[in-house]
Write a protein that binds this DNA or RNA. Sequence first.
DNA 1: CTGTTAGCGCCTTCAC
DNA 2: GTGAAGGCGCTAACAG
Lengths: 341, 341
Amino acid sequence: MSKLTLKQIAAHFGVAVSTVSKALHDSYEISESLKSQIKAYAIEHNYRPNRLAISLLNKNTKTIGVVIPNILNYFFVQVLFGVEKEANKKGYSIITCSTNESFEKEEQTLEFLRSGAVDGLILSTVAKGGQYKVHQKLLGQLLEDGMQLVLFDRVIEDVACDKVVVDDVEAGYKATKYFLDTQCQSVAVVNPIPESNISQLRIEGYKKALAERDILFDPKLIVDVDKQTDIDLSLSFLLNYKTITAIMVLDEITAVQVMQIVRTRGYHVPNDIAIIGFTNGQLSKYVTPSMTMISQHGSYVGETAAKVLIDRIERKDGKMPFKTKIIKTSLLVRESTKPRL
Amino acid sequence: MSKLTLKQIAAHFGVAVSTVSKALHDSYEISESLKSQIKAYAIEHNYRPNRLAISLLNKNTKTIGVVIPNILNYFFVQVLFGVEKEANKKGYSIITCSTNESFEKEEQTLEFLRSGAVDGLILSTVAKGGQYKVHQKLLGQLLEDGMQLVLFDRVIEDVACDKVVVDDVEAGYKATKYFLDTQCQSVAVVNPIPESNISQLRIEGYKKALAERDILFDPKLIVDVDKQTDIDLSLSFLLNYKTITAIMVLDEITAVQVMQIVRTRGYHVPNDIAIIGFTNGQLSKYVTPSMTMISQHGSYVGETAAKVLIDRIERKDGKMPFKTKIIKTSLLVRESTKPRL
DNA sequence: CTGTTAGCGCCTTCAC
DNA sequence: GTGAAGGCGCTAACAG
């Protein structure tokens, strides 16, 4: 019925538990005949050592926790994929927690995860503004407890741990420069994640590209939208304000929506208005016209985070300086932009 | 540095470990003054009990394992979402494993998960053909070990456990009937998952709908495709073979691809050819024209599976008959089909 | 009120 | 060759 234990095997053979343990570990101390008998019995009855007991003993669980803001977001799923791939390769399994963009849920999750269930944590936080302080404390405690931590994508600068981030400044720069290189001089930005510092970095890159061409930055060309906003209306203002020849949209779904709205209004994409979206996922490839995207290589981000984390977990010496890995993005050119000449 | 234990607290106060344990559990046996001292110390130093030890003691881990074939498939992500939501509500966390459509990986994963890390398992298998036998044995062993198991979506009939399945026959029927009700009498099927028994069920529903209208079933209208197949070519054969007015495509990405190919060849969607896709995800809503889909309510499937599993885990008496829950699908009508009059 | 004992399942060290 | 003892961190039953 219930799980077979060493004790039960020992009882069955009338020997001590430690004898069975040694036999199953093929110790030279045990006679061949007893070993083979015990092994045969174990196999026949499907013995499996209890990981909990083993973890308790050697203080590692061979498990890493991954905390992401939203499991329905394809970027994070890609990260998850990468983490799992790398972790499995090294004999770890992962326990996944989605915080649904809620800071409270994230706190609860971290609280839960700190109680010995995992050897290390890979986290993309939802904290913003004043919540950073709370987190610095909470994460600080985790680190004190000896928990290994890798922050990725949405990181908190002041926490002393390894980090894996996307080069968002460069991404914004790259997208903007592509527009400027393809006869699109009037570039607007639609920002569906205004509260995130990531969007600020991308806009920084955008400004840099403009500056290189001596184009004056116009804040009115940055359109913040959120779930409450009527994108349609915001775009109206934008398009009436000035002739726009290119739009950089800071996520995938919004990019597709923007493209549809723009087309509905009779603009041709890319000839009238070119569009580049962020965070390459499943959508952009299959819409019509297919959309040029900044790919963040989520799965690579995940792999890297897992690699860094496991490396630190398994390195005994400990005092390795923390490093921040910066993952470069790529521009996937498709049909929503004009070709480079 | 490392985690604080009861033992350390006990040493600090010069009392016994059990005293500390009782104090932290607010036992009436301990003097108020000692209790408050110990509690204060625990809070100050951030004491957290070790879950591993507790799990070992009461033989439950408050964790459930979820094994899915592919984490990049939106349906499974939705299921995951549902499972997590329900599990968290009941105080469980989940450990996620993706088997990447590989039977070997699935076996390894199950092997791993059986060693005491989880109280129960929610599984959608990738097994097919001869692999069923292997699995019946493996899953049988798991059940013997006292592991609770819920199979979902891709289930194995002969395993004695709870199941949550989508009503695929009805889904196929519903889609086909919608075509027939909207002046599309010549309905083809594109099947990107021919090895799965799910596709057979959907086709069964398709046949049922045809039979109701006395339309003869023509096997040539069923087009199997897989990753190796050139969809473009397969569709050529189909469209040359007969005038087709509707296509039912058994997954989302293929549905979008089929629609694009069909449109490229000059057919109007939905007037010349109407299309219904399966497994509503992120794509179908945003393509042009937006696509009518069968929604399988993945998140509801997940919730249900979690509910059933946790129910069984927590019910002590045990001998509850196994049940199979059938989740109904919905038809989300969008622009790729003609409206019902 | 507080401590001792025993045990969850396993492994390691040391003694026989 | 085999077994006994100790311990990972915790709780529960039983002593004192």
